[in-house]
Amino acid sequence: MVLVYNLYIFDRHCQCIYYTEWNRPVSPLTADIASVRTRAKEVARVNQGRSSDDNGAASASDSRRPLVWPTAPVSSSNAKDKSIASVQNVAMEEEAKLVYGVVLSTRNIINKFNGKDGPQGGNPGGFMSFATNTYRLHYYEAPTGVKFILNTDTATTSMQPVLEMIYRNIYVEYVVKNPLFHIDPHVSVPIENDYFRAVLNNYIREISASSTTTA
């Protein structure tokens, strides 16, 4: 049983181009959404009878589909929704920067210990994962500099094949080969491909369900 918490993808310009989470207990995205929902419920209670409750439908679909970030800007005219979205955005941006900083520094120090550090970066030292007492962070860097960071429970020791699989068969297949995904090599573009999301989500669900623990 593998418990996957979340996944970050960073491009070669140090930008988080994709984030998604599955079983994350505390998150800058859910924390605010929870408060939005309670607020929405209060509003709905007040307005009962006056407006049809479409919040219910929205939250039901939310719980089925994992949260992703960055998302397209909220088109809602509701000022409150917008401000909450921007608060979430800021929180997520901060988090992504921190994660990138931690991972990059860890990788660099490992490279240094191996005497293989240099301005070209890369992962010659072979940084694969680190663990705390609550989670394990897995790291994979493609030779083109795209970085995948996956957090799981501590019992899961090796996710290298999984991350490689995500890069080779999901990222390359649905992002790089997607003609609509505009790759300008000098600008970061977030991944907003539904197909990519769906395939990734299925794959993660599959490995979460498989009882064989990769040891």
Binding site: P143, T144, Y167, R168, N169, Y171, V172, V176
Partner: peptide, 19 residues
């Protein structure tokens, strides 16, 4: 050039070559 920046990922994914 625009083809190349994508194609490289495809080559690497197919072959598993390192830097």
């Amino acid at each position: 050039y625009n083809i190349g920046v994508r194609l490289i990922d495809d080559v690497l994914a197919r072959t598993g070559l390192e830097k």
